[in-house]
């Protein structure tokens, strides 16, 4: 077992607290992820996947329970510290890419470094390296609307790893892509996992893609109902 990166204990999340329509979405999640693990979270719509993802990604706070990310107790952090944690510890990859349309691929990859305060020259150099790593070197000066879905997602993966975060959080990264480009994107995740020893949490509907991961966690009605070893890789071993 490696170093512990994520430790969730009895995480509960309720919405509309104190109102008649108060709703508990997560009913006490216990989850531990070690450094270098590639974990898939699967579940139907409304199972609480996204809520869990938001809590793990420090976009939202749990109502109850304890969450320790890379040694930091999230419940004790203030807003500014949460921003810093998101900036340095978490790399997001979204289903809808969420690239900033006015800016070129390089500028988009530079963004997390911009908020970290990395000097301009250094962050441009790093962004170019990262884009090269995801095979986007020839499209660096292109704006998102000049890129295909798969290319956009590669840019957003490069952006996610820009600050060398503790975890990469991918929310349905292949949800908007066809199967062939999905494959390319998944291969990049595998490479990050294998070659760069990144900790990746992948949220997906796609059972086949999930089963490629080290561990598959099934969420149902706000509870972890199943957990099994994956590791079935297509052409990647």
């Amino acid at each position: 077992m490696g170093e512990r990166i994520i430790s969730l204990k009895g995480i509960k999340k309720s919405f509309f607290i104190g109102k008649p329509n108060e709703l508990e979405v997560l009913h006490g999640i216990d989850l531990e992820v070690n450094k270098g693990e590639f974990v898939a979270v699967v579940g139907e719509s409304g199972s609480g996947k996204s809520t869990l993802m938001n809590i793990i990604g420090v976009l939202d706070r749990q109502t109850d329970g304890k969450y320790i990310l890379d040694g930091i107790d999230i419940s004790k952090a203030n807003d500014k510290q949460l921003s810093e944690i998101r900036n340095k510890k978490v790399g997001f990859v979204f289903q809808t890419f969420n690239l900033i349309g006015r800016q070129t691929a390089v500028k988009n990859v530079e963004l997390p470094m911009l908020y970290k305060g990395v000097p301009k020259k250094e962050r441009t150099k790093k962004a170019e390296e990262l884009l090269e790593m995801v095979n986007m070197k020839d499209r660096m000066k292109h704006k998102p609307n000049e890129l295909s879905g798969g290319q956009k997602q590669r840019v957003s993966i490069a952006r996610a790893i820009a600050n060398d975060p503790a975890i990469i959080l991918a929310d349905e990264p292949t949800g908007a892509l066809d199967s062939q480009t999905s494959r390319t994107v998944m291969d990049i995740f595998h490479r990050l996992h294998k070659e760069h020893n990144k900790t990746i949490i992948l949220i997906t509907h796609n059972r086949d893609l999930a089963e490629e991961c080290d561990r598959v966690i099934t969420l149902k009605d706000g509870m972890i109902t199943d957990e099994f070893e994956g590791g079935r890789l297509n052409g990647f071993s």
Binding site: G57, L59, D79, K80, S83, E84, R86, N87, K88, F92, F94, N98, L99, I100, L111, P112, Y115, K116, R159, N163
Partner: peptide, 16 residues
């Protein structure tokens, strides 16, 4: 709005 959300997810503070 979405851009602002993205920026915040990437680590932008309220102040920035």
């Amino acid at each position: 709005t979405k851009e602002i959300g993205t920026r915040k997810a990437l680590g932008a503070t309220n102040a920035s």
